[in-house]
Structures are given as C-alpha cells and as structure tokens.
C-alpha cells in the first residue's frame, strides 16, 4: 500500500498521481474545502470556546457518525502524521476502523496507530485517552450537539446572543435548580465549561473524568460538529473551568475503589462490561491503555 506514496506535496493527488488506489483528492477533501475548514479552525483558536460556523461538506459517512471531527482531521492531516481513532476508548469499534480505513485509502504517507504516544492526531468520540498527551499532539473531538445552552434555550438566535453578551444566567440557574432539587449537580457527560474566562462550551460528551484534562493542557483541542456545522477550539495552555458553585464544586466520577478486571488499575475511567453469564465487571474504557498495562504486568 505504501508503494503508492508520493514524495511531493499532494496538492491535487488525483491529477498528479494516476497510481493512487482511490482517485480522490489527498485525504478525500479537495484543497478548497480543506482551506475553508482550516480558516474556521483558525478563527476557533483565536476565540477559544466560540462556535465558528462552517460549511460542513458531504462525506461517505452519515451525519451523526463523526463527520465534523473527520473534516477537521482530514483538513489537517498530511504525510508524516500518525492518526489514532477511538470510539469511547476503543480503537476497534466499527466506526473507528472505518475512519482509519478512509484515511489510509486517501492519504498516503499517513500512518495509523492504536498507541496514543505515537499519534500526532487523535480523533475521538466520548473520551480523552488516559496516556499523558504532549504539545505536538492534536485532539480532535467528535461533537453531536455543540451548543451547551440548547438545554435552556431552543432558539439559535437567542443562544448566539447569549454567547455574544456573555449572558449565561440561564445555564447557571439550570445548575442551581439541579442542586436545589437533587442536592448536587447531576450532569455528567458533556459537562459545561468556561473557556478562557469567557465562552461557555460543551467539551463534547466526554465523561467528567476527562474534563480536567482540558484545563491548561499542553495540546490543542479541536471540536467538530458536522451535522450542526460548527467548529470550536481550546488552544494549548488555556483555562477550562467547569461551571460549578463554590459550595458545590465540580467532582469527577468516583468508582468506589473498583479496579479494572483486566489490568487491575484503579486510576482510570472504568466502564461496566456485561459478561456472557449475565453478570458485569468494571474495566478500563481506554482499551489500548488497559492493554499496555496488562503487558507491563505480564498479563497478556
């Protein structure tokens, strides 16, 4: 497969190279589309947490399956990049596999991996990998619903005004009512955060466990919502603070001392895995991390 790699910059792979398997532009998207996505990304980085509208293009993947994240990835990726794709921590889900195959097919010179530390671009749905990330890596989040205020306001015109005027009383009062009714904040996935002290953002449906990873992170985080046609970003070393009260602070999930049934770790995000006999065990959500731990302990 790698024999078809070209050494020159693939401005228009379909024309300069008759030997590619796909006959598509490099990384599937034509260069004009990639430029427009990159412009949206630059705007997003310039105003952290602000949702930039963009012309979300057609892809051979249905809406709701990560087309936004995919457009971001395809606009950034080039020879020498290493791509990891996970779906709720798993590298092996059907969707993750399909996305990797599309990239392998249309972007010669790009390697794919399951090892977090090798990746330059990590596209994800619902998790941040457990491994520490560094400044040379880019996280690309798939976002179903980019508007954190939608729960309190149906109208797009009104939510845009609320962001423009930093008029966030209504999302705060929703949290307040939550505390009053339940004695604590019951929101879990997609917990609203304030970015750079200004915009309220949803970090995509990652668990609360992962939210603190965004605060002052060394890596760039990009968020793509294909169906809703929005891109937003958290630049490196930016404040990302979950909305919470001084007397009801933000808290990550508590697993009550449970350990992963596969690798034994007690410091990762665990999910319940049903067993054939009808019972269930707790196991690391980040499967490649779990596998690496098992290898370390000589357990594979």
């Amino acid at each position: 497969m790698n024999e078809a790699v070209v050494s020159e910059i693939p401005h228009d792979a379909s024309r300069t190279q008759s030997g590619t398997h796909s006959g598509y532009s490099y990384a599937f998207l034509d260069e004009l589309t990639k430029k427009s996505v990159r412009r949206a990304i630059l705007k997003a980085v310039a105003v952290p947490g602000y949702q930039v509208p963009f012309g979300s293009t057609e892809l051979p993947i249905a809406r709701g399956w990560g087309t936004g994240g995919l457009q971001v990835t395809l606009s950034l990726i080039g020879p020498g990049d290493v791509l990891k794709v996970i779906d709720q921590g798993s590298d092996d889900s059907v969707n993750a596999v399909n996305i990797r195959q599309l990239v392998e097919l249309t972007a010669p010179g790009v390697d794919t991996t399951a090892a977090t530390e090798e990746a330059t671009i990590i596209q994800t749905r619902h998790r941040i990998p457990e491994a520490p990330l560094h400044a040379d890596q880019i996280m690309v989040f798939q976002v179903p619903l980019p508007e954190p205020l939608r729960v309190v306001e149906r109208r797009e015109s009104e939510t845009r005004r609320m962001h423009a005027e930093a008029d966030y009383g209504r999302i705060w009062v929703a949290l307040y009512e939550d505390v009053v009714q339940h004695g604590r904040i019951t929101r879990s996935a997609g917990y609203p955060v304030v970015v750079n002290g200004r915009h309220v953002m949803t970090p995509s449906p990652i668990p609360k466990w992962d939210v603190p990873r965004l605060h002052q992170a060394p890596f760039l985080s990009l968020f793509g919502a294909g169906r809703e046609k929005r891109i937003y970003a958290v630049p490196p070393l930016t404040d990302v603070v979950p909305l919470a009260f001084d007397d009801y602070p933000f808290a990550i999930e508590d697993f009550d001392g449970a350990h992963c049934a596969r690798c034994g770790s007690d410091d990762t995000f665990l999910v319940e895995v049903p067993q054939p006999d009808g019972s269930s065990v707790m196991s690391c959500s980040d499967e490649s991390w779990c596998e690496a731990r098992r290898t370390e302990r000589g357990q594979s």
Partner: peptide
C-alpha cells in the same frame, strides 16, 4: 421564567451578577 421555581427566578439574577455560592 414560569418554568423554573420562584427562588430560581430570583437566583437567575444573582447568578447573572456572578454570585457563586448556592
């Protein structure tokens, strides 16, 4: 806001004025 509590209606103004203790 007729859908949230009376206390919530008052709280909304306080929250918009950056009160942060429940």
């Amino acid at each position: 806001n007729l859908r949230i509590s009376a206390g919530g209606n008052v709280a909304e103004r306080l929250l918009a004025a950056e009160w942060r203790r429940v």
